[in-house]
Design a protein around this nucleic acid. Structure first.
Lengths: 334, 334
DNA sequence: TACCGATTTGCAACCGGTTGCAAAAATGAT
DNA sequence: ATCATTTTTGCAACCGGTTGCAAATCGGTA
């Protein structure tokens, strides 16, 4: 039913190769030939089959976009930026939802079956081994928001989560809090682990402080809210200020705190991470650490594209600096 | 480099057809043959090339997922449900981000080039003609959240937006508001138009009421906030209660109202539409009309799958009922 | 053992394109 | 007009699979 190369060739009275050449740029076709073919093609409404051509060219222009975070609103922006960015370069995002799955095997097999040119793993929770599985299958891969390592085995683009942990700690210390809490995302998430590591490392310089920590089960509003409710219900006094693993957690925490009749920042201080759109809303006004999402995604796309050209490119880590955005959920420094 | 059918056939000492058959279910292969082939295949790490086979079978299992709403958090859930649902059925979502584009031509061409088996248009703003362009190109299509019509030309799954408009109007009348406002999404969006139509139709029964309307430029927090700020800055008294086109708009409106020092629901009443997760947050507690997202998406997937089997299936509209969820942004009925 | 029908297997053509190579046509110089 | 050179074109093989058909094998029965 659909019109093929052969149909166009017959209509134009030329060989199939001629038609193929007019649709591949850089090929040698005379102006006259091109006109003939284009006329026939447009009369028939022909457009070349990308998958058939991928068989011989070895390029599908498909990029696997693998993520496991479909509950954090920041990821809507992540998907928006990734899909737009890829489209603008003529690449097609094949979306893989990894919810409830932590082994790479299925995704690797599936994306190999579809001959994707490359893969972007967009996740701050999956371990480096996950992205490595793609490289081991000879699929170019970039891990966005992944764990930084001084000797990365795959390309990583993101932030230095350990440094962010330190940054949050310094901010809380500066403001004179003495009972300080870490309320992280899932304990298995690499970003949680790294932020916690930096946080405690920095606070170890201040042994007089009382430091506690706990974990939410996910990077989501509900999980943050539930974890704070649990802390409050234990009856023990909670920390004066918390570094929450992520803005959406912070906002959940905020709602639990307010429900309990406590005031922010007077009774409880909060600092988040991400600077999502909502953090700036008037009735939230979350003090947070800004993660430069747009730059990370742009750079990820550039890197994956470069890796398509040069598959054996030496693994690289690209880190972008974060900074504190001061709003209204931490008390001022004394 | 990657291992092909031929490699496996040679290793197992059988014909290529034999290998092909062991990997297509329903084909005639003896147990002995199957064992031989599977052994060779697993030794070589073979997995069949889905795109090559699509050439002869005519099925790619790719489904185009087309959307233009990457700013409304509800769509993160929409993408989550769609991708999971499609994956569970062995279908692969090829995501198309339509931001800033309203013509279907590019998407149709691109998705035809990739031989998608079907398309889901997930958008409450695009007109029926958009989805029709896919059907005109002989691509099975389902329009999710699209405009209902008594004689649909393509499959539509969603809600009766006109009825939702009526429902909101009845709710506001019931509570005794006399100055009533409609604050919709973009004026071109079909959902905005339909909700407004139902809303005014119902209010026409109460000529004593003072009804006004205005539009935000997008279904987003910022747009809702900006539009309410504009209304407030005009100096004229604003309505006592608003039907906002969508929850995320309502929340933007809410923040502008609170910034202005007004109290909800005492000074201003709000009713939204969607019942997104955030609407239930304690510090928002939005009274809203619940749209059954999960059912709509599940049904859309079932319908698109059915249409793959039966491309000439008669166009169908599937509508799901909505209901008011009462929280704290409307005053109680007198 | 010979014969019959049912299964299983391989051959070869095909899906919709691309591309190396050699033949054909066009171009330019003399 | 001739010839050398460059450009354009078609042939045919190939990409990685599938499938109709006929030949080969199998199992059972007479």
């Amino acid at each position: 039913m659909p019109v093929t190369l052969k149909d166009v060739a017959e209509r134009a009275g030329v060989s199939r190769s001629a038609v193929s050449r007019t649709f591949t740029d850089g090929a040698s076709v005379s102006a006259k030939m091109r006109r003939k073919v284009e006329k026939a093609a447009s009369e028939l409404g022909y457009s070349p089959n990308a998958l058939a051509s991928s068989l011989t060219t070895g390029r599908t222009k498909l990029i696997g976009l693998v993520s496991n975070n479909f509950h954090n609103p920041i990821f809507l922006e992540v998907f928006d930026l990734f899909t737009r960015g890829l489209q603008d370069r003529g690449l097609r995002p094949l979306l893989v939802n990894l919810t409830n799955e932590t082994e790479p095997d299925n995704s690797v097999r599936m994306l190999r079956q579809y001959s994707v040119d490359g893969v972007v793993v967009a996740s701050s929770t999956l371990p480096p081994a996950f992205a490595r599985a793609f490289r081991d299958a000879d699929i170019p891969v970039v891990h966005s928001f992944g764990r930084y390592s001084s000797s990365p085995q795959v390309h990583v683009v993101g932030i230095d989560n350990v440094e962010c942990g330190r940054m949050a700690a310094r901010e809380l210390v500066k403001r004179g809090y003495s009972r300080i809490g870490f309320l992280g995302g899932p304990e298995q998430a690499t970003s949680t682990q790294d932020r916690f590591a930096g946080f405690t490392e920095e606070l170890a310089k201040h042994p007089e402080l009382d430091v506690s920590h706990s974990y939410a089960t996910a990077y989501s509003f509900e999980a943050g809210r539930a974890e704070m409710q649990r802390l409050l219900s234990e009856g023990k006094p909670i920390a004066e200020a918390f570094f929450c693993g992520d803005d959406v957690l912070s906002i959940g925490v905020l709602s639990a705190v307010q429900d309990a009749g406590l005031r922010v920042p007077d009774d409880v201080g909060l600092i988040g991470l991400n600077d999502m759109e909502m953090a700036a809303w008037e009735n939230i006004s979350l003090t947070t650490i800004r993660q430069p999402i747009r730059q990370i995604i742009r750079s990820s796309i550039e890197l994956v594209e470069a890796t398509l050209e040069e598959p054996d490119r030496y693994p690289e880590a690209r880190l972008f600096p974060c900074s504190v955005v001061e709003r209204k959920t931490l008390r001022p420094a004394p």
